[in-house]
């Protein structure tokens, strides 16, 4: 039963699709999160009940669920607008994109602060990677045996960093306020 689940990359691709779709269609960053939650929850429920088989590109299937959820939500908001003489705030595309950019920059800022808590070697790996060096070049600079060692190091440093970020009060406050 359930030999294969969808993976992180699928959710990551889905998140990009949903973000773009919702933000372009009058939604906010909070709406993106809500739609993602509802979409994934629906998908996992169907999957757990064996009502569907995971296809080659499940993100498109889940995306169609998310689109449906968002359209329903928009419909609901329009009804509220008509019945209660309530104007739904129209957000321009560019405004959404600016907010999204600001959100991303804030997360990067938190990541940067926490990177400083890592070992010097981890910091160097991330700095060099950010400067655009390939794994092979990083291996040369850090005098590591080969690029595979850089990849291993990068993976471990990333795990440590994300753990630190998740414990960081600034990050927790940020995602709860977003």
């Amino acid at each position: 039963m359930h030999e294969e689940l969808i993976d992180k990359d699928t959710i990551s691709k889905l998140l990009r699709l949903v973000r773009l779709y919702v933000l372009k269609n009058s939604g906010s960053i909070q709406d993106v999160e809500d739609v993602m939650q509802d979409g994934l929850l629906t998908f996992f429920q169907k999957y757990a009940k064996k009502e569907l088989v995971i296809s080659e590109k499940p993100e498109y299937y889940i995306f169609s669920i998310c689109k449906y959820i968002w359209l329903k939500e928009l419909e609901k908001r329009k009804r509220i607008q008509l019945s209660g003489n309530y104007l739904v705030e129209e957000i321009e595309d560019s405004d959404c994109m600016i907010k999204e950019k600001e959100r991303k920059e804030k997360i990067i800022e938190i990541l940067e602060i926490n990177i400083k808590l890592l070992s010097t070697k981890c910091q160097k790996v991330f700095d060099l990677r950010r400067d655009g060096l390939t794994c092979k070049e990083i291996a040369e600079v850090l005098q590591l045996k080969n690029d595979q060692m850089v990849k291993d190091k990068h993976y471990r440093c990333k795990q440590r960093l994300l753990e630190l970020v998740k414990q960081d009060k600034a990050y927790r406050d940020f995602i709860n306020d977003a």
Partner: peptide, 10 residues
Amino acid sequence: VREVDLDEVF
């Protein structure tokens, strides 16, 4: 979703 998002930015 939040963890995937964080991972994506990273």
